[in-house]
Design a protein around this nucleic acid. Structure first.
Lengths: 233, 233
DNA sequence: CTAAATTTCAGACACTCGTTTGAAATGAGC
DNA sequence: GCTCATTTCAAACGAGTGTCTGAAATTTAG
């Protein structure tokens, strides 16, 4: 027998990437050892270094193959909305739908279980910010620039600083909401179901858009407790 | 000479805790080795296990000595606002001021540099969710219950599920905003200054409150792209 | 001062990690 | 069939980890 339930020639790479993506999402990057990954994937330990060179490079390839098509889907959805809007600026809701929804869609290659990729994203961001910084600069900054530009068209009066801060809040909340699903669940006595992705995304978009509908920021009266003494008994 | 610039009897514990808190915040829990911590603190490697028993227990003690006074300050601020409100329900703004501002105040013991503790909190939450779960249940759930109750008085009409989801968004955003300050900085071309804590907290509170001022959630028309095919392209 | 308790210290222990090696197995081209 | 490149494999390497040990140093008590 030549292929008794194990692997075909080229899919060792694929099995490693899929398993690693899942484990990185579940346990984090550092906590997921190559021994555990290769064991779960049913391949030899040395296969990772043979096919990818190093563990860091494995992560980089996993990120890249997800981010590129993700951003293509975002742009496509944005473009679709624009065509339907008859030249009018898009609503904030539509803009964030195009930004968020593609994150939660299963997508090739190797259709992950639910959005395992964005969960991994959240974990890796706080764990490996150095390695991540390059990817962010290369793939996320350009897409953020696009969405910021679209937001600017919809909100021409909003000061740049306000727009940027609110957008950062939106991105931060988006990523953290997914990578910390379990915390949400446990803190709400089971009333909030973070596995109901559709419901969560809708609420997330509504929450974010509310932050943009607010009038511009006024540094008004800061509570006295904060301004002066930084120390409170 | 008996004390040439090194340590007095009881402060070995304190030096370890302060150094560990700082390193956990900067590099994460797993990435901060006891050798690095004890070297930076100027104490012997074995001192951690002697004074704390284990690395996990060290983290637990660090968490506990910050969380307890933090929640006391929150309750105190909330109580202060209530006394000034003459029996009227507090505004959402005031409620979240009492919830957020104490997080960003330097506080004893061992006044950390800025809110190094909450940054550590954010890192540890995603890294050590198991160890953290007990602390969360013991210290954060009770305080969240209190604030949810106060919010409920201010927003008696809001459905429980809406209230809980929005509150979870608020907590998630609060923690993530701090533990990912560097990402915010780099993504905004330097326009947003995450080191201006006062400004950031004000904007954060405004953003969060906007999400609560929205009308109740309506599961209205979900975009067709999401409902059906989970796969795009 | 002396004796007991506390704290510090250098060193070792067992373990896990990512990575490398060199030989075996498997593939494709002729 | 054989040949040569690709891929797999078991085993080991060196470095790093948290923890433990037993003796030295220091502080505290009597």
């Amino acid at each position: 027998m030549k292929n008794s339930g194990s692997s075909e020639p080229r899919d060792t790479r694929e099995r490693i990437m899929a398993t690693a993506e899942r484990l990185f999402a579940a346990d984090g990057f550092d906590a997921s050892s190559l021994r555990r990954i290769t064991l779960d994937a049913g391949v030899n330990l040395a296969a990772v270094n043979y096919h990818f060179g190093s563990k860091d490079e494995l992560l980089r390839e996993i990120l890249e193959r997800r981010i590129v098509p993700l951003n293509e889907r975002r742009i496509a959805m944005l473009q679709d909305f624009r065509e339907k809007s008859a030249g009018l600026p898009l609503t904030i809701e539509k803009i964030f739908e195009a930004f968020l929804i593609p994150l939660f869609q299963k997508a090739p290659p190797a259709f992950g279980t639910d959005p395992v990729f964005i969960k991994m994203l959240g974990r890796v961001i706080s764990e490996r910010s150095e390695l991540f910084r390059k990817e962010v600069r290369e793939h996320f900054h350009p897409i953020q620039k696009v969405f910021l530009q679209v937001l600017r068209e919809t909100l021409p009066e909003m000061p740049e600083k306000d727009l940027l801060w609110r957008f950062q809040f939106a991105v931060t909340l988006m990523i953290a909401s997914v990578s910390q699903r379990d915390r949400i669940m446990s803190a709400s006595d089971g009333i909030c179901d973070p596995d109901d992705t559709e419901d969560m995304v809708s609420r997330l978009i509504q929450f974010i858009c509310a932050g943009f509908h607010e009038p511009n920021f006024m540094p008004d009266e800061m509570p006295a407790e904060m301004v002066k003494g930084n120390v409170v008994l």
